[in-house]
Amino acid sequence: MPLVTSTEMFKKAYDGGYAIGAFNVNNMEIVQGITEACQEEHAPVILQVSKGARAYANHTYLVKLVEAAVECCPDIPIVLHLDHGPDFETCKSCIDGGFTSVMIDASGKPFAENIEITKKVVEYAHDHGVVVEAELGTLAGIEDEVKVAAHEASYTRPEEVEEFVSKTGCDSLAIAIGTSHGAYKFKPEQCTRNEKGILVPPPLRFDVLEEVSKRLPGFPIVLHGSSSVPQEYVKMVNEFGGQMPNAIGVPEEQLRQAAKLSVCKINIDSDLRLAMTGTIRKFMAEHPDKFDPREYLKPARANIKELVRHKLVDVLGCAGKA
Rank of each mutant, 00 (worst) to 15 (best):
Ala302Trp: 08
Gln32Tyr: 08
Gly85Val: 10
Arg215Thr: 14
Lys147Thr: 14
Arg157Cys: 15
Val25Gln: 09
Arg157Ala: 14
Ile46Glu: 04
Leu204Tyr: 07
Gln39Phe: 05
Pro202Phe: 05
Arg294Ala: 08
Pro217Met: 09
His310Trp: 08
Arg273Val: 00
Asp105Met: 02
Phe206Gly: 08
Gly242Lys: 11
Ile46Asn: 00
Pro44His: 00
Ile177Ser: 04
His151Val: 10
Ile95Thr: 09
Ala285Pro: 07
Asn238Leu: 10
Pro245Asn: 10
Pro251Gln: 02
Asp171Pro: 14
Arg294Asp: 03
Glu253Ser: 11
Val146Met: 14
Gly197Phe: 05
Arg54Tyr: 03
Val250Gly: 06
Leu139Ile: 00
Pro245His: 13
Phe206Trp: 02
Gly242Tyr: 11
Ala149Met: 13
Ala259Glu: 08
Lys167Gln: 15
Phe99Thr: 11
Gly129Asn: 05
Thr168Met: 12
Tyr18Asp: 06
Gly225Met: 01
Ala319Val: 05
Pro77His: 08
Ile76Val: 00
Leu297Thr: 05
Ser166Gln: 15
Gly16Asp: 00
Thr138Gly: 03
Glu162Gly: 09
Glu306Gly: 00
Val31Cys: 13
Gly182Cys: 12
Glu306Trp: 00
Met103Lys: 12
Asp269Phe: 04
Gly137Lys: 02
Ile76Ser: 05
Thr100Arg: 07
Ala125Pro: 01
His181Val: 01
Pro158Met: 09
Lys260Val: 00
Asp87Trp: 12
Val250Met: 02
Pro202Ser: 10
His287Pro: 11
Asn27Phe: 09
Ala55Tyr: 02
Ala53Leu: 11
Ser50Asn: 04
Ile117Tyr: 14
Ile221Asp: 03
Tyr18Lys: 00
Phe283Ser: 00
Ile248Lys: 04
Gln254Tyr: 07
Ile198Asp: 15
Arg157Thr: 13
Met28Val: 11
Ala176Thr: 10
Gln48Pro: 11
Pro202Ala: 09
Gly17Phe: 07
Arg281Trp: 04
Leu136Ile: 12
Pro220Ile: 01
Lys119Pro: 02
Ser226Leu: 00
Ser270Met: 03
His84Glu: 04
Leu272Asp: 09
Ile221Ser: 06
Gln231Ala: 06
